[in-house]
C-alpha cells in the first residue's frame, strides 16, 4: 500500500511502485483531468503539480511521489475557478481541449513562480504540444492572467 496525497486528500493505493502517476490518477483514483498523449514526456498532456512544480506524470513512478503534495486540474482551485482557468475561458483558448488541462497546469506553475512572464519565458516553459493549434490564445491568456491579480472577487465570479 502506498500513501498518496492528491488535491489535499490522502489515498491509499495498492499498485506497483513503478506504475506512472498518470495511471494511478486516471485508473485508480478516477481523476481523468490529466491525459495520456505520448507516454514518454513529449507532449505535456499529463501535467500535474508535485510540490508546486509542473511535472509530466506519465513518466513519474508513483513511488517517487509518495508523501508529496500532488495537485491535479481537479484540485487546482479550492474555490471556483483559478484565475488561469478564468483567463482560459475569457480568451476562449481550448479547441478540442485534450491538451488544455496540461497547458493550464503548466501555466499555473509558471505564474506561481514568475508572476509576470515574458514571451520568452512562455516559449521556454510552455512546451506542451497542442495538435489543434491553440498557442496564440495560450500566450494571450497567460498574459491576461498575469495582469489580473488573484483576488477573491475573481474567484467569486465563477
Amino acid at each position: 500500500m502506498l500513501e498518496l496525497k492528491v488535491n489535499g486528500r490522502i489515498h491509499s493505493v495498492d499498485v506497483e511502485p513503478e506504475m506512472p502517476l498518470l495511471w494511478v490518477l486516471r485508473d485508480h483514483l478516477n481523476l481523468h483531468g490529466a491525459k495520456y498523449g505520448c507516454g514518454i514526456s513529449l507532449c505535456g498532456a499529463c501535467t500535474v503539480h508535485v510540490d508546486g512544480v509542473a511535472v509530466r506524470s506519465c513518466s513519474l513512478p508513483v513511488a517517487s511521489v509518495a508523501h508529496k503534495e500532488i495537485v491535479t486540474i481537479e484540485g487546482l482551485s479550492q474555490h471556483g475557478l483559478h484565475r488561469i482557468q478564468q483567463a482560459w475561458i475569457e480568451n476562449q483558448v481550448p479547441q478540442c481541449g485534450y491538451c488544455q488541462t496540461g497547458m493550464i497546469m503548466t501555466a499555473a506553475a509558471l505564474l506561481a513562480k514568475n508572476p509576470q512572464p515574458t514571451d520568452a519565458d512562455i516559449d521556454a516553459t510552455m512546451t506542451n504540444l497542442c495538435r489543434c493549434g491553440t498557442y496564440a490564445r495560450v500566450r494571450q491568456a497567460i498574459h491576461s492572467a498575469a495582469g489580473a491579480p488573484a483576488t477573491r472577487a475573481n474567484a467569486a465570479k465563477s
Partner: peptide, 20 residues
C-alpha cells in the same frame, strides 16, 4: 463563448478516453 469550454478547462471527463 463556446458551450463546451467551461467543462474542458475544469478537466471534466468529457472525452472518449475518460469514460469510467
Amino acid at each position: 463563448q463556446r458551450l463546451d469550454i467551461p467543462d474542458k478547462v475544469r478537466g471534466k471527463p468529457v472525452f472518449g478516453v475518460d469514460v469510467a
